[in-house]
Design a binder for these strands. Structure first.
Lengths: 147, 147
DNA sequence: TTGTATGCAAATTGTTTGCAGTATA
DNA sequence: TATACTGCAAACAATTTGCATACAA
């Protein structure tokens, strides 16, 4: 369980973010994805999904909504080496990182986090303010392993 | 010391990569940067530099050369959350990661590497073939810390 | 000499912006 | 009702491609 739907909606309201049907659909999709432990979503994937219920939604609305959510700290933007840009719900109790297949782009969550590296970095650079970090493992999934 | 100039040129020849003056200039710039321990370079920065000696070089040649070097494993491409794409020379004996300032984009090398996370990931997913990884710390540099 | 690399220009992709209309709070 | 959000179209930036020429091997 990641976060209650009501809890999330409450947060949005508290932050003064207007809750339009499109935004609600976007955030709910991200929530469902987080609960399922699935990979992060691209802007286009999000639009495809929201279109099923709101056929008129445009990609720029998706981008704008994601920018708002990201600015408010509800969503995290990820950038991978294959140049793909993806988004996922931020949730403290669900900290994870990713494995990315170089062959097919498949993304899998991994539970390991370099907390010790982070601690060392904080100790070593006390004059720097550390806010966030990313750890991504690249390789081949079983299907792509043997070319 | 990262790698000898001759060693690097030798590697290129061995790989069957034609050594044009432009490519030589690009790889030497990356080598100098690696030796100095400086931040990775963007395609545009590389072009700016190579232009000083070869004014006619175009950005697409830089991109094409970098793609070739990356494909051959001589260069690593990095992607940061501010959407910047940068390149650095690959070198086993000089393993490092990066700190990126959210305020000004300043990039600093950090020596800490999540080897233990990597080991655990390998143990946990033996059917996956792990090739590479990235670890990036985001935060504020002393100048940007107090907004 | 042969085939690969270059530079130019045009195409492409992903993302952002301006604007007028619409809907939330 | 006031203001923020949406959709459309146009603008944009970064990167890639096609093609004729130049050059490394």
């Amino acid at each position: 369980m990641v976060m209650g739907e009501e809890e999330l909606i409450g947060q949005l309201k508290m932050m003064g973010i207007r809750l339009t049907p499109q935004r609600q659909e976007i955030i709910m999709l991200l929530l469902k994805r987080a609960e399922a432990g699935g990979p992060p979503l691209s802007a286009d994937e999000i639009m495809q999904h929201v279109r099923m219920r709101y056929p008129s939604i445009s990609l720029d609305t998706v981008y704008r909504s994601l920018a708002t959510f990201t600015r408010e700290g509800l969503v995290r933007e990820l950038q991978f080496r294959d140049h793909s840009r993806r988004f996922e719900l931020v949730h403290e109790d669900d900290h994870h990182h990713h494995f990315v297949c170089i062959g097919c782009g498949y993304i899998m969550r991994i539970p390991y986090c370099p907390v010790d590296c982070l601690k060392r970095a904080k100790e070593c650079y006390p004059e720097y303010e550390i806010e966030d970090h990313s750890f991504t493992v690249y390789g081949y999934c079983p299907e792509c392993k043997d070319d």
